[in-house]
Amino acid sequence: MDTTGTLDEALQRLHTSGPERLGRLTNHAPMAVEALAANGQAAAVHRWLDLYASRLEEFPAGVEPVTDADWRSALGDPRRAADWIAYFGRELAEHPWREVLALWWPRLLPGMYGGSTHPVIRVGHAVRTLLADDGTGPRLTELAHGLGYWAARHHPVTGLVPVSGAGSAAAALDAVEPVAERAGGFPDRLGQVRSVPVWAATVTDPAEARRRLTELVRAATHRYATHGHGNETMLVHAATAPNAVLRTLPALPEALWVPSLQAAWTASAAVTAMYAPDAPVAYVPPGPVTPEEVMERALAHGDEHVVKLTDTAMDFGDERSLAAALRAVELSEPLR
């Protein structure tokens, strides 16, 4: 983790910007700069931000304050993003961040599909910084922005029918049935997801839930190497969304680990269903390359989803994870 202060400087720079742009696209900068700083690239953070700056929009205006008495009526209302961020800013100023997270995690978890899963991913990056050093104001503010964005974009998915699955995460992802109409954006496709293969449904032990979640993130990362061409951007989230949940587990009471696994699996399976290609391509080994070299290639490429998938790949560092990161570099449009 960055100890130079660069990450905190970058977060302060970004907290004058809103969580979205053009009314629907996510501001990825806070997540990307955290990923760079966490992987030894803090010196490049401000240079990367300069390239991304044209995609930032001003922080939105508030509507009315969210309170403990009326928060339910504001949940899932994207017009209230500023109100929610201000609410969590107050909560985090008055209570330890782990207490706030533990209270709100089960409230927000069912709605992790809103904002194309980006809100939970932003929270996962924020929590990683706080687990490394929970004493800085910018990192607490970043958690407030992440939780507030999640509350504003909260969108549950209900009525999914469980269908036959498999014993491993990789096999269960293979068993996901693609949606019939693969056109339109994330909300349109999400509405077509009707079923999810059964996987890890009988898990009750928190330690086993963490093991299974790790297995899922690894499997989804590996799968990108052969299936990423289905949608080079959106299929990244099949790995990064559950990884955000996995990274948050150490900060949560163990009683929340099993439901976290189930929500993460549903999200990963849904993204897989929405963007799966008609057929995989052959796996191509990455050759003699180190994790550090792969991260440098991701930075040189610059695309925020490439950076974030590479960050997830670094958590494993095995051959197939590195191949997935390099496949993202190959498929995606560079940041210019």
Rank of each mutant, 00 (worst) to 15 (best):
G167E: 07
S168G: 04
A169K: 00
A171C: 11
A172Q: 10
L173E: 11
L173R: 08
D174V: 09
D174K: 12
V176R: 03
E177T: 13
E177G: 07
P178M: 15
A180N: 11
A180I: 14
A180V: 12
A183I: 04
A183Q: 09
G185R: 09
G185Q: 08
F186P: 05
P187N: 08
D188I: 10
R189L: 15
L190F: 06
G191V: 08
G191C: 07
G191D: 13
G191M: 08
Q192S: 02
S195K: 05
V196Y: 04
V196C: 05
P197D: 11
V198S: 05
W199P: 00
A200P: 00
A201N: 08
A201W: 04
A201Y: 06
A201T: 13
T202S: 15
T204G: 10
T204F: 01
T204R: 13
T204I: 03
A207W: 09
E208I: 05
E208K: 05
E208F: 01
E208W: 02
A209P: 00
R210W: 04
R211I: 06
R211Y: 03
R212S: 07
L213G: 02
E215D: 13
E215R: 06
V217F: 01
A219G: 08
T221R: 15
H222Y: 14
Y224Q: 06
A225V: 10
G228T: 03
G230N: 00
G230F: 00
N231L: 00
N231W: 00
E232M: 05
E232H: 05
E232C: 04
E232V: 06
T233H: 06
M234P: 00
L235Y: 11
L235K: 09
V236K: 07
H237F: 11
H237S: 10
T240Y: 01
A241C: 10
P242L: 12
N243E: 14
N243I: 07
V245K: 05
L246K: 14
R247P: 00
R247F: 02
R247W: 12
T248Y: 10
A251K: 11
A251Y: 10
L252K: 12
L252A: 13
P253D: 15
P253A: 15
A255P: 01
S260V: 02
